[in-house]
Design a protein around this nucleic acid. Structure first.
Lengths: 225, 225
DNA sequence: CCAAAAGTGTTCCGTCTACACCCATGG
DNA sequence: CCATGGGTGTAGACGGAACACTTTTGG
């Protein structure tokens, strides 16, 4: 084992996950009660320490997988948070990641087991340390991202109605969208494909279900909403 | 000294600075030769280890100040880079920051002393570790940022001509801009003020010098270029 | 039969884009 | 006197925003 940098100090490094979901026409985040000192019992994001044999991205993926059982989830880095006093115990620098999951894929039992709750992004309580800041920054990032990249589908089932999709965009941006204008724009994006299936849970008449075709998107990657 | 997390491992944490400048109508970055092992002699960003008594932001500011002698410089975090093999010596996670400075404020002697060079963003050589990736990401961020926030002025002297400003935006985006359309948009932003001063170094006729009025911008923070 | 959501086009207005010529001056 | 960069306005194209009614069906 070499020791190139032995004169310098090391720090604890953790990852924290902002897990976004979409339900009841609201953008939501998954939060829980912190189960270790310091700060035990405060509202908190789910996180963990980075191991020496894994990259930051891997660490975030592992942490999310521990919590949800889900693999291959869309995750993006939010940034590193490193104020000295951010952790009341010791110096810990944390790298935040956000994830977007389909709430339906999530095992209710796990939610119970970890004591987690979905909270509307509008009603996030005061949280441990700088976790509010992380959530705010992550929210800004997905808003930006969803305008130009087809990542919103991560929050929906494989098959979805256009109204669902519209409600998602309304929830993320916090403002209403004109239905006809919205659908006009969808029609231009050929990788959002109408299927022959109909969803009757949301209305009496029923609405066509659509699907995001990733392969088709690769051929003509022009997304804008 | 408490030890809440003693069961976990610590890692080395560094900051790396992507220092942007603007000269000869080109967007440039300041790079040097790495002066420590491993990787000694390779092209590298300037960086340093984070001390246990400073935040990440402070660490970046200190590192930049060591190098340039400049205080109160515009810096923004690019993100954390943490692949396992990113440092050939030991596990080091690095947080990259970009800075925007006015090349004229920079002491030439320091540049010599540290063996640094300004390199056009288009001609960045193969660099140590993941530093190319950091530069690419930072470049993307300033391109984005400069569209909606008045940060480009950080790269210019206090007084500048409209042609200089235009060349800056052309350099950052890599495409030419129509002069009349550009000036029309400037005219709408009242916080970009024409002064009575004239610069004659750039042309025989001379061009009016303009100034960014920060206070005036705060009152009506609408920037778009 | 009616409430509730699905579905569908057109017009208008503002914004962005393209474009060409005169001015002032130092050498 | 001419080469060089500074400075100015308009018209047409395009894209985004506003806007209302018909359809279907479960209860």
């Amino acid at each position: 084992m070499t020791a190139f940098y032995s004169e310098y100090q090391k720090v604890y490094l953790s990852v924290d996950c902002i897990i976004f979901g979409f339900d009841s026409n609201k953008l939501q985040v998954l939060i829980g009660r912190r189960n270790m000192d310091p700060g035990r019992g405060e509202w908190s994001l789910y996180g963990g320490f980075v191991r020496s044999d894994e990259s930051l991205d891997d660490s975030a993926a592992r942490t999310l997988q521990e919590l949800t059982g889900l693999h291959d989830i869309y995750m993006q880095q939010v940034g590193a948070f490193g104020n000295i006093e951010r952790d009341p115990g010791e110096r810990v620098v944390s790298v935040a990641y956000y994830a977007m999951i389909n709430v339906k894929d999530y095992d209710e039992a796990l939610l119970q087991h970890y004591g987690l709750q979905w909270i509307d992004i509008e009603n996030v309580p005061k949280m441990y340390s700088d976790h509010n800041e992380m959530i705010t920054k992550a929210h800004g990032l997905i808003r930006q991202k969803m305008k130009t990249e087809p990542v919103g589908f991560e929050l929906l089932p494989d098959l979805f109605t256009l109204t669902q999709l519209q409600r998602l965009y309304e929830a993320v941006n916090g403002e209403e969208i004109d239905k006809r204008n919205f659908r006009k724009r969808i029609k231009e994006m050929h990788f959002i494909e109408k299927t022959k299936f109909i969803d009757k849970t949301g209305s009496k008449r029923g609405a066509y279900l659509y699907r995001f075709n990733k392969a088709s998107y690769q051929e003509d990657p022009n997304f804008r909403l």
